[in-house]
Design a protein around this nucleic acid. Structure first.
Lengths: 109, 109
DNA sequence: AATCTATGTGGTAATATTACCACATAGATG
DNA sequence: CATCTATGTGGTAATATTACCACATAGATT
């Protein structure tokens, strides 16, 4: 049995880990395949070290895992259900007419 | 077609809205049924106005909707798939042995 | 071994988030 | 209508997050 408080803290940590435009974009990019830091850095206009810190953070939280190969480090999703989880939110957003920001139904199950 | 940047911002906003222990607890409590502010406040040791601000924030983001009835205000989930979305994260956490903080598989699909 | 390449870390200034207090208000009740 | 009850808002101090710079390191290349 998992401690309630601890479980809540872990869930919040994961959500916080996803709640940043750079980090969420990385997670989405990793949905299909792993990428090296060099390629991930290319995606953004931010400093290389900024991206590196976002990756370290997500690794520490448990969202990503890394794998070294020569000079390069490859990151991949450690929580595989994330893309489908996020697609729930996407459907909510995409389903909107421009006026209403969010609708009430999604996932259609 | 939804603007990519805007969509990302909205997704991040929702995730941020969930990424706080008080707010996530509220969302979980609202999974089953709506609640008035007075009852939600009872759940926590924080100041009443702190809870009120968390509710306002989630309403603004679109996570919650409210409904007035006399003096009381009832909040409910506006994004209904949230509980099942969060259960994905829960399974990841619960599936752990105490040593490993996160596992790689979840949702069992 | 000197150098280069890919990546990571410590420090820090700028910015955002959070929690509480003081105060405001709408609707019920005496 | 005076008051009470449930709720919300503005302001602010404490804290957390973020992005960059300077620097460090491991492994490849010359």
């Amino acid at each position: 049995m998992v401690n309630e408080k601890t479980e809540l803290r872990k869930k919040v940590a994961i959500l916080k880990g996803l709640a940043h435009p750079v980090r969420l974009s990385i997670v989405e990019a990793l949905a299909d395949s792993e990428m090296c830091v060099c390629d991930i850095v290319e995606m953004f206009d931010f400093d290389r070290t900024t991206i590196s810190k976002h990756l370290s953070l997500m690794k520490e939280i448990g969202i990503l895992s890394d794998k070294k190969d020569g000079l390069k480090v490859y990151y991949s999703l450690r929580i595989r259900c994330l893309p489908s989880m996020l697609s729930c939110i996407e459907k909510v957003i995409e389903g909107n007419d421009p006026e209403t920001v969010f609708i009430m139904e999604c996932c259609g199950k």
